[in-house]
């Protein structure tokens, strides 16, 4: 397998804005001069279901899908979904996970139990991981909807992308009137 390719797996729940986050991430990687590929699915799979987006970058990327067990970073927007895809993480990989719980239908109906202690399980197996209180920081930034930008800020810590390029990518994808709040959210996330 091409060793110089880096793999980021974004996971969460349909409706959380994962696809937009992976857009911004891919844009920033392209602007940094990398070959970039990303893969995801639309349609039936998106209706409140488990969502997954693969982002790969390096000098030359072939498969848009990350080979099993080769993810360098698992970027999770929700706890259970992050935990679900943990087996795809490389043994030296790290998870960057939003500390947010969204109940799946079976749990809402009282038929199944949400897995307890996910943050500890993640950091226990992958000690370089980070659990982020995205919602708290988004509230600090002034808008709960900036939670994904907060998370991107935290992720940015682990990637070789210039801060100016992140700002450029955000400007390209975020409407003018929300830009200032989003830049603030990004900085808060990066500071974690």
């Amino acid at each position: 397998m091409a060793s110089e390719v880096k793999n980021i797996l974004l996971v969460g729940v349909g409706g959380q804005g994962i696809l937009l986050a992976s857009e911004i991430l891919s844009e920033a990687l392209m602007l940094s001069g990398f070959d970039v590929k990303k893969a995801e699915v639309h349609g039936m799979a998106q209706r409140g279901g488990s969502v997954i987006s693969h982002v790969r970058y390096g000098e030359k990327v072939y498969s848009p899908i990350i080979p099993e067990g080769e993810a360098d970073i698992l970027f999770g927007f929700e706890l259970l979904e992050s935990y679900r895809y943990l087996p795809l993480l490389h043994r030296d990989g790290r998870a960057v996970v939003n500390n947010l719980r969204i109940n799946p239908p079976g749990v809402s109906l009282g038929q199944e139990n949400y897995v307890e202690g996910i943050p500890e399980k993640i950091t226990g197996h992958f000690p370089q991981s980070k659990i982020v209180d995205g919602m708290t920081l988004a509230r600090q930034a002034g808008d709960l909807r900036t939670v994904n930008t907060v998370l991107l800020g935290t992720l940015s810590h682990f990637l070789e992308i210039d801060e100016s390029i992140w700002q450029q990518a955000l400007k390209a994808r975020v409407p003018e009137r929300f830009l200032e709040t989003n830049l603030k959210a990004f900085a808060l996330g990066r500071g974690v």
Binding site: G48, P67, Y83, L89, V115
Partner: peptide
């Protein structure tokens, strides 16, 4: 089979798509 660095020892609740 690839041997993952981590595997679950419990059954996880599914998250199928649902009506909005």
């Amino acid at each position: 089979e690839a041997s993952p660095a981590f595997s679950h020892d419990e059954v996880l609740p599914n998250r199928p798509p649902s009506m909005c």
